[in-house]
């Protein structure tokens, strides 16, 4: 795997009024994003997510540290040629129609006019706004502006997408469309960096995540690994005699169940085969054995609580 984004001890501070008070928005941040993955960037409000994205795009100058995007300095036009960006608040020139706006962004990107027209038609169609392409943006709803923002981000068929809260203004149908689009882009080998508060979206889309708090990196890693850390196994069966329950409980298992389905939760995988042996012994059919995972939301809150107590 090739690293597309490298952050190396990135720090960004802002000087306040009078230049005496200094706020550190991003503090000694280091991580990398690999080619072809969907990378989630999580953190509470004011954690420094947007500041990091702004620095990666060259809008902000690092106070110390640095890094690269496609091996180029932040904000390098050659790198930007391969990047699409959707900001949290999509601010578009309201006098444009979607067609006109995409034409403007295509010219800024140096796209061939014929190719740009074809791409614009495709992305407008793909994001479900082709039927309003002659309407002024000022007449658009928030959700439509969000879709249009995404359309301009994917217009140049970029290799890397930075999406800041891409689904925040969308209805469930819109969210599904966007998720499908992102999965399609991933299948094409594109890299996507998403900053979002909607943890269920991150959980369903991302391969890896970085969690930051107060500008510092708290956790980074593959989502599967992070969510399975410290979790056990859940075994389900549809028959569980009392003797078997007692034996399982002696092994430390917790039995939850009704008359028809029983779930056995084990705190770790060590006793997994012992429990399966007990079920076999008592003639209990095995329905499933699955790794017990916490949801990203639970994991996120645990991490945040842990950080608060530090």
């Amino acid at each position: 795997m090739t690293s597309i984004i490298e952050l190396d001890h990135l720090t960004k501070s802002f000087k306040g009024r009078g230049r005496k008070v200094e706020t550190t928005a991003v503090n000694d941040l280091s991580f990398s994003v690999e080619q072809g993955e969907i990378f989630g960037f999580l953190g509470p409000n004011g954690a420094g997510k947007t500041t990091t994205l702004y620095t990666l795009l060259g809008f902000l100058h690092p106070s110390s540290g640095g890094g690269s995007v496609f091996g180029l300095p932040f904000g390098d036009p050659e790198g930007l040629r391969r990047i699409g960006y959707l900001p949290e608040y999509v601010n578009l020139h309201e006098y444009y129609t979607p067609d006109g706006m995409l034409n403007y962004y295509a010219r800024l990107s140096g796209l061939d006019p014929v190719e740009a027209r074809a791409r614009a038609s495709y992305v407008l169609e793909r994001l479900g706004i082709a039927d309003v392409c002659n309407k002024r943006i000022s007449k658009f709803s928030k959700g439509m502006i969000q879709r249009l923002g995404l359309a301009q981000a994917v217009l140049g068929n970029p290799d890397l997408l930075f999406l800041d809260e891409p689904t925040s203004s969308l209805d469930p149908v819109g969210r599904k469309d966007v998720k499908d689009l992102l999965l399609e882009l991933k299948a094409q080998g594109k890299t996507v960096v998403i900053s979002s508060h909607i943890l269920s979206d991150i959980e369903s889309l991302c391969d890896r995540v970085a969690i930051i708090r107060k500008g510092r990196l708290v956790k980074t890693g593959k989502l599967d690994e992070l969510l399975s850390t410290g979790s056990g196994v859940r075994i389900t069966t549809d028959k569980l005699p009392t003797d078997a329950v007692n034996e399982i409980q002696q092994l430390g298992g917790v039995v939850i169940g009704s008359d028809t389905v029983f779930a056995i939760e084990l705190p770790d995988r060590e006793k997994e085969y012992d429990v399966i042996g007990i079920l076999r012994k008592h003639g209990c059919p095995l329905i499933s054995v699955a790794e017990q995972k916490s949801s990203l939301e639970d994991y996120f809150f645990d991490i945040m609580k842990g950080e608060e107590t530090k």
Binding site: Y54, L80, N91, G149
Partner: peptide
């Protein structure tokens, strides 16, 4: 904030 949309392009 429109400047950021523009400068995210190779401008």
């Amino acid at each position: 904030g429109t400047v950021r949309m523009i400068l995210s392009r190779p401008v």
